[in-house]
Simulated assay, not measured.
Amino acid sequence: MPKSLPELADEYRRELLDQVVPFWEQYSLDRVHGGYFTCLRPDGRVFDTDKFVWLQARQVWTFATLHRRVDAGRGWLEVARHGADFLERYGRAPMGGWYFSLTQAGEPLVVPYNIFSDCFAAQAFGQLYQATGEERYGTLARETFTAILARRDTPKGQWSKAIAGTRPLKNFALPMILCNLALEIESLLEPEMVQRLTDECLREVMTVFLDEETGLLLEDVHPDGSRSDSFEGRLLNPGHAIEAMWFVMDLAERRRDTELLHRAKDLTLRTLEYSWDTEHGGVFYFLDRLGQPPQQLEWDQKLWWVHLETLIALLKGYHHTGDARCLEWFHRVHDYTWKHFRDSEQGGEWYGYLNRRGEVLLDLKGGKWKGCYHVPRALVQCWWELDELGGRR
């Protein structure tokens, strides 16, 4: 029999406060050079010392958020400052963009080709500004956000590998993130800009990238919104689609737009039904909209962030619409996620990568792409949603 909502809320809260956050506090802080180690084995040992700017920024955001919204008395603000100081000193290139990666001591390794370093830097310093009121953090967030908007039509700029004009494509990830980022740093922006930007992002996410034939969200379309019959143009990324839907639900709640809430909930369920592995359980990483073989060899892996974002979206969908299918799916995804990704032996942070059968593929707790972000964010979000659904918030 499934646990009650209050019991589940307590489970998520304990996992956050007693296991996951202490793991990163104990093992990730570089006390010599500053910043955070993210390449960590199950027992917390560091296996690589390179520092990836978007993961540094994500961890700053996580601890600043925990300080602001969970408990201001646990020293989490100092953990956030620890990473922010390192980013301020070393993370930004002379031309203003944020590097992709640095050495342990802060020397640049990879140029600022990836606009998501900038997105998460803006998010981190915006959250830190709200936590401290210190203007330098607000200035950094605002300047970075302005630069993102200037680059959004050509996010990789001179570092793009594609030949210009042959097969121009725009990607789903940036409007998806901007939906959330604009609200994260809203206090630093003009209200008209926030309204205009969120309107544009909602149109892109819910209309331009929506494939009417399948009712699913595509990862890439032509700049005019037309479909591309190519690997990229047929690509589905269920995790991106579902994560975007809870961003949209937050916007819809803010706007009191009941129709939009139901559309986002329905898209969540449709994506989940299409991408669930009926043989082994779990959500596939990549799929092709026409059922063709995807180009990604890792298409059938099961990833931590995909399942965690799904849990958030399902709870928000149930909370805002009362659709019982959301709660039924939540229990199913919860059981799979906690059984396979959570480290029941050593505790701490969760595993990130499983094979199709649900077996741990890489026994790391953090690496180049996985840091202190999706697990704690999802635990917080689910804890709060479950508390509210159970009548305790």
Rank of each mutant, 00 (worst) to 15 (best):
H240N: 09
Y285W: 12
F231V: 06
E212L: 09
S230D: 05
W299E: 06
Y274M: 08
L287C: 12
V194M: 05
D257Q: 02
P238T: 11
F231R: 10
R255A: 15
F286R: 12
R234M: 08
V306W: 06
W246C: 04
A252W: 03
A313C: 03
M206L: 13
T310E: 02
S275K: 07
D199H: 01
L202R: 09
V283W: 10
V205D: 06
Q301H: 15
K265S: 15
G291K: 00
V283C: 14
Q296L: 12
H262P: 00
L311C: 07
T198N: 12
M206R: 06
C201A: 15
E200P: 13
Y274W: 14
L202K: 03
M245S: 11
G239L: 01
A252V: 07
E200Y: 14
L297Q: 15
A244H: 04
Y285V: 14
G239H: 07
L217H: 11
R203I: 14
R289M: 14
E204K: 04
F247T: 05
L202V: 15
D199E: 11
T214K: 08
L216V: 15
T268A: 07
L216P: 02
K265D: 13
D257P: 04
A241H: 08
L267H: 08
R256S: 15
G215D: 04
T271S: 09
A252E: 00
M245P: 02
W304E: 05
P293I: 02
K265L: 11
H262R: 12
D229P: 01
D224E: 04
F247Q: 04
L297I: 15
L202D: 04
L272P: 02
W246M: 03
R256W: 11
G282N: 09
V248R: 00
Q195F: 13
L311G: 07
L218Q: 03
Q301I: 13
R203S: 09
H262M: 12
W276M: 09
T258M: 01
Y285Q: 10
D220W: 06
R227Y: 07
R227I: 05
E204D: 15
F284N: 09
G281I: 06
L290W: 08
E298A: 14
D199Y: 01
V205A: 00
H280V: 11
I242P: 00
R255S: 09
D277L: 00
W276D: 09
F209M: 04
E253L: 10
E259A: 14
L303C: 08
V221Q: 00
T198Y: 01
H280I: 05
R255P: 02
P238L: 06
T207N: 14
L261G: 06
F209D: 04
L272R: 01
E273F: 14
D266W: 00
G215V: 01
